[in-house]
Simulated assay, not measured.
Amino acid sequence: METLSIGEARDHFAELLNRTSYAKERVVLTRHGKRLAAMVPLEDLELLELLEDRLDIEQARNALAEAGTDMPWDELKKQLSLGQ
């Protein structure tokens, strides 16, 4: 994985875009020596989004399991101020 300053990346943007999209390289961008952002292949981004979605679903399922199912729907709607 290559690391470049923002200025260097700006000067070579088209080349970096080709390298990330076709060669599947990852490039870390820095400002004043600090890591700021990254250019990654679209497939990497899609995988990250899929993982985030799965974590969200897992957290929602865990929250539902912890809440239990003992409360009637009408009572839950009332407590959440839904559909009154």
Rank of each mutant, 00 (worst) to 15 (best):
K77E: 09
F13H: 06
R31Y: 07
L80E: 06
E66F: 11
D56A: 15
M1L: 13
L29H: 01
A67T: 06
E58K: 13
T69Y: 04
R31F: 02
R35P: 02
P41D: 04
E58V: 09
D70H: 07
S81F: 04
T30E: 09
I57T: 05
L17H: 07
G83V: 10
G83S: 12
L4T: 15
I6V: 15
L29D: 08
H12F: 02
M1V: 10
D44E: 12
R35M: 04
Q59N: 12
R61Y: 06
L55Y: 10
W73F: 15
E2C: 07
N18K: 06
L76M: 14
R26S: 04
R10K: 15
L48I: 10
Y22A: 05
I6N: 03
G33N: 02
P41Q: 08
L55A: 15
V40S: 07
L55G: 14
T20A: 09
D44Q: 04
L42W: 06
L50K: 12
T20C: 08
D70G: 11
V27Y: 09
L45V: 08
S81L: 05
A67V: 02
E49R: 06
E52T: 13
L4K: 14
K24R: 05
E46Y: 02
D11C: 07
A23H: 03
L80R: 11
G33K: 00
E58Q: 13
L17C: 10
D56G: 15
L42M: 09
R10Q: 15
L45P: 00
K78C: 00
R35K: 06
R35H: 03
L55V: 15
E15G: 04
E43Q: 13
L47W: 03
K34I: 11
